[in-house]
Design a protein around this nucleic acid. Structure first.
Length: 485
RNA sequence: CGGGGUGUAGCGCAGUUGGUAGCGCGCUUGGUUCGGGACCAAGAGGUCAUGGGUUCAAAUCCCGUCACUCCGACCA
């Protein structure tokens, strides 16, 4: 056992030749990993990405898990058009200002110039709001709870696969409610749903809270976000939930006749998560060998590697185990390619498969298999007899352990500061920094200017410090500052 | 949008003073191998990112464009 672990370690140097060193150049490591593991490739148009089968399978797992959670809260799926008349965007002043610079516009179609240019949706509040105004007449029609899984396009200047691309896949939920309280409750409930999802499915601990005015969504009354810490200490906004008040209902004329016989504007919300979450998984769990995928989103949960496959019974035994595991609900596959086992070990480790099962003649003789966990790189021997029980259990353990170890890593890098210097020192040390804040834009900008860090979310419920760490005036909020993607 | 880097076979790269397009890995076929990136043999694979220019002759020199990438500024 010990010898085997030494062998694993002795190969590290050789392996690193394929991907950049995670410590030395995290950005390059990320790019290498997403392309070499065949999650993604670059599309022919600037800023676009092709999500390859291995990457798309992760997205499908995310979709399935999240969609079930939405439906359990009464949300129904729908689909709204990709093209939105440009004029729709001008109806909400802040919204158009926020999105205009990055909207792609179709000006020609059918061989002729269009009378009105059409926006390729950067988000769908405007078209959905327009439809809602047609559909909603009475308080009996409320609440409206819809979600769509779709693509959106934002013409970004700098792009990176999954983290920021011109076109990306996401879900956007849009709801209408009769009261402010109910709409706010919806906003908070979806934020809580996202948090539960991030932690239990992606195994990524997140910090949730309200965004500052500067960071909020264009057109929102309030934006709430969840922030995840990446291995380089930077923060990634992994999901947002917006409370719009009556901003959009007034802009798009979403009115209902209430019980008291008066016409009232509805209160709306929207909430979204995107393929960016795949980037979060990569950057929260990866290591120098590549991906480490949480079992619940891994396309392949257990890869079976035959050893000395030409020898009698090996391939057959691998097939038997694969069938048993599939029956037990495990996404299992056998790698029957004609390559050396060592090569396969390295490849599947890079691709982040949670469990590797080695089966060779010696194992079959002893009625066992060698099992390796990707998260800890621990090798153990397990009995073939009850493998359909031990493997699913191990997957659950890995899922749980990954969240716990991520949380421990993150918590060790959350610090508090009561001065600007303290904030800067904190973010330079790759930490999240909690600090008091007076609430003014100048102080927020100062942190950005001096430390390249932004206010991620406010966490006032933890208790607001007395003074603003930046200007020393009385603090109104407790904020998490960090450098962000 | 500013600064740096790169673009030659699927991938990683070499290509000197302008003169027939190369290497390693991978790929195909056959054989031997198989418990941490196996080996032998025979093959296939190119509009040198792209558009112009200079020249008898351009991967190589000049001008433009595009893409990717890294570092900043702006945004999910």
């Amino acid at each position: 056992m010990e010898q085997k672990n030494q062998a694993v370690n002795s190969k590290d140097k050789q392996f690193v030749k394929d991907i950049a060193d995670i410590e030395e150049n995290f950005a390059q490591w990320y790019t290498d990993v997403v392309t070499k593991t065949e999650l993604v490739d670059y599309g022919p148009v600037k800023g676009t990405m092709v999500i390859r089968p291995y990457g798309y399978a992760i997205w499908e797992n995310i979709q399935r898990e999240m969609d079930a959670r939405f439906k359990a809260t009464g949300v129904k799926n729908a689909y709204f058009p990709l093209l939105i008349p440009m004029s729709y965007f001008t109806k909400e002043a802040e919204h158009v200002e926020g999105f205009a610079p990055e909207v792609a516009v179709v000006t020609h179609a059918g061989g002729a110039k269009l009378d009105e240019p059409l926006a390729i949706r950067p988000t769908s509040e405007t078209v959905i709001g327009t439809m809602y105004s047609k559909w909603i007449q009475s308080y009996r029609d409320l609440p409206v709870l819809m979600n769509q899984w779709c693509n959106v396009m934002r013409w970004e200047k700098t792009t990176r696969p999954f983290l920021r691309t011109s076109e990306f896949l996401w879900q956007e939920g849009h709801t209408v409610h009769a009261s402010e309280e109910e709409a706010m409750e919806e906003t908070m409930n979806k934020l809580a749903l996202y948090k539960e999802f991030a932690e239990n499915v992606l195994a990524i601990p997140v910090l949730c809270g309200r965004k500052t005015e500067k960071e909020k969504f264009a057109g929102a009354v309030a934006t709430f976000g969840m922030e995840a810490m990446m291995l380089d200490g930077k923060s990634l906004q992994a999901g947002t939930s917006h409370y719009f008040g009556q901003n959009f209902s007034k802009a798009f004329d979403i009115k209902y006749l209430d019980k008291d016989g008066t016409l009232k504007y509805g209160y709306t919300t929207s909430w979204g998560t995107s393929t960016r979450m795949i980037g979060a998984v990569i950057m929260a769990h990866g290591d120098k060998r590549g991906l480490v995928l949480p079992p619940l989103v891994a396309p392949i949960q257990a890869i079976i590697i035959p050893v000395a496959a030409h020898k009698g019974g090996v391939i057959e035994k691998c097939g038997e185990v694969e069938t048993l595991l599939k029956k037990a609900g495990v996404r299992a596959e056998t790698d029957v390619r004609d390559m050396s086992p060592g090569w396969k070990f390295n490849e599947w480790e890079m691709k982040g498969v949670p469990i590797r099962i080695e089966i060779g003649p010696r194992d079959i003789e002893n009625g066992v298999a060698v099992v390796m966990r990707r998260d800890t790189l621990e090798k153990t021997t397990i009995a073939l007899g009850d493998i359909e029980k031990t493997v699913p259990e191990l997957l659950k353990t890995i899922q749980k352990d990954m969240l716990e170890s991520s949380r421990a890593k993150r918590d060790a890098k959350i610090v508090e500061a009561d001065s600007l210097d303290g904030i800067i020192a904190g973010v330079e040390g790759k930490n999240f920094v909690k600090a008091g804040w007076c609430g003014c834009r100048e102080c927020e900008d100062k942190v950005k200017e001096v430390g390249q860090a932004t206010a991620r979310v406010m966490c006032d419920d933890e208790g607001v410090p007395e003074k603003c760490a930046i200007c020393g005036k009385p603090a109104k909020h407790k904020v998490i500052f960090a450098r962000a993607y």
